[in-house]
């Protein structure tokens, strides 16, 4: 089975129907609510998306609590409008960008991606978003920049989970610049053609499908172009368990559990595990980024 789904092409990433039906390409963030669900074609075989219900009721978003159902219960307390994102560091056009300004002119497309949590569960999610590189190109990355650092909103009175000190808030993540510029890396503003639900990281989040889910930082308020590898939250908590790269890799176990298999959420009480794919099935697209690197060392 692993073999069958390993060799994905670009057509698998974005379903063919998407290319055929231009109406589904929704220009601008304001239009994301238009009929992408009704018009969405059948997903590529083996990539049948999870239900909207699954995707929005089983989340890790520790700002709202450590339970899987906490985000669905409490994330509505977060105000997402107005929303602005600070872009700073080694960029030509730093500043505080209003969400509309950020997404203005970007082509919002549907990307059906596998999503693999470091906890060995997975989903398939039809995101709506645009490539991060489009935004980075627009703000002008300066030559010295090597990494991109991201921060999640930290607003304790709207995020009850932040009262616990489990994470040194705000939540932080980072990518190497070439990872950030990769065409698979998107900033998502919605899923299933609807505006991003709060529990999934409204109004704008990162999605890096070949990395464990925690790298795909939610509710972003800051993007910084930097020269040095930035600190990232889970790596700060347990560096031996969560590396900076955190690429999905069935051959490198988490110290406390195997990463060789995963369970698709939504399969019920008798769902079997399935093999985890190298780079979460995006090996052909991203393996080149890590050529010559010892992935056991740079986990």
């Amino acid at each position: 089975m692993a073999k069958k789904t390993r060799n994905l092409t670009w057509a698998d990433v974005t379903p063919e129907t998407h290319f055929l039906n231009r109406r589904q390409i929704l220009a601008g963030a304001g239009a994301v609510s238009l009929g992408a669900i009704a018009g969405r074609g059948r997903a590529t075989e083996g990539l049948e998306p999870n239900s909207f219900e699954d995707i929005t009721s089983y989340n890790n978003f520790y700002e709202f609590g450590t339970g899987k159902e906490d985000p669905a219960r409490y994330a509505h307390e977060m105000t997402t409008a107005p929303w602005s994102v600070t872009i700073d560091g080694m960029v030509d056009k730093p500043g505080s960008y209003d969400l509309a300004a950020l997404t203005d002119g970007m082509t919002i497309e549907e990307r059906i991606y596998r999503f693999r949590c470091v906890e060995a569960w997975s989903m398939v999610i039809p995101w709506n978003g645009f490539e991060l590189r489009g935004l980075l190109d627009r703000v002008g990355v300066q030559p010295g920049a090597k990494y991109v650092a991201f921060e999640t909103l930290y607003r304790p009175d709207e995020m009850r989970g932040t009262r616990s000190r489990i994470i040194d808030w705000p939540y932080r993540e980072g990518l190497r610049l070439d990872e950030a510029m990769h065409p698979l890396t998107i900033l998502a503003t919605g899923l299933y053609g609807k505006p991003m639900p709060n529990q999934n990281g409204a109004p704008i989040r990162l999605v890096v499908p070949w990395k464990y889910g925690f790298k795909s930082i939610k509710s972003i308020v800051r993007i910084s172009l930097v020269a040095e590898q930035p600190e990232t939250s889970w790596n700060m908590i347990a560096p031996n368990e969560y590396g900076f790269y955190s690429n999905v890799n069935p051959a490198v176990d988490h110290p406390r559990w195997s990463q060789a298999t995963e369970r698709r959420v939504g399969g019920g009480l008798f769902a079997a595990r399935q093999d985890t794919l190298m780079f979460n099935g995006y090996e052909d697209e991203v393996a080149g980024l890590y050529e010559g690197m010892d992935l056991k060392r740079f986990y």
Partner: peptide, 14 residues
């Protein structure tokens, strides 16, 4: 767990 009352990942929940 059988009937969906434990959420979308009933095995871990149980």
């Amino acid at each position: 767990g059988l009937t969906g009352g434990l959420g979308p990942e009933p095995i871990k929940a149980l």
